[in-house]
């Protein structure tokens, strides 16, 4: 469950690069360990986030997952569908369950993201 076309972070976020923009969500592994997701808090569009900054929260009944911005940039779009139906993240983490999109400020940061292979290694390591 680690799509090849995406990049990843150690915090279990995925990034889809689409000419200058980065669409962000949480991975299958992350949604599974959280359990039934019941609430999502998204950043306001227009917010400028630094890499590693906390930008969103994903909650299950008994756990809270913080989502850190995988890249620096401006939030240009958020997914209204997940706010209304947080279970989309459980059902389709890499598709309809996306959280927000960023305008990438520094292309070099993209290089630091994990490849699918590296992320798979991380999962095997129990991380």
């Amino acid at each position: 469950m680690v799509p090849k076309e995406l990049r990843y972070t150690k915090e279990h976020e995925w990034v889809r690069l689409e000419d200058g923009r980065a669409r962000v969500g949480i991975t299958h592994h992350a949604q599974k360990s959280l359990g039934d997701i019941v609430y999502v808090e998204l950043p306001p569009p227009g917010r400028v986030a630094k890499k590693g900054e906390r930008v969103a929260t994903v909650e299950s009944v008994k756990a809270v997952g913080e989502v850190f911005s995988p890249l620096s940039g401006k939030v240009v779009e958020v997914n209204p569908a997940v706010a209304a139906s947080p279970d989309l993240i459980n059902k389709d983490p890499y598709g309809q369950g996306w959280l927000f999109a960023l305008e990438v400020a520094d292309a070099r940061e993209v290089e630091a993201l994990l490849s699918p292979e590296a992320y798979e290694e991380l999962l095997k390591g129990g991380g």
Binding site: S60, K62, A63, V64
Partner: peptide, 9 residues
Amino acid sequence: LQTREQHIR
């Protein structure tokens, strides 16, 4: 809404 509470957050 226990995620507001101290035992989780």
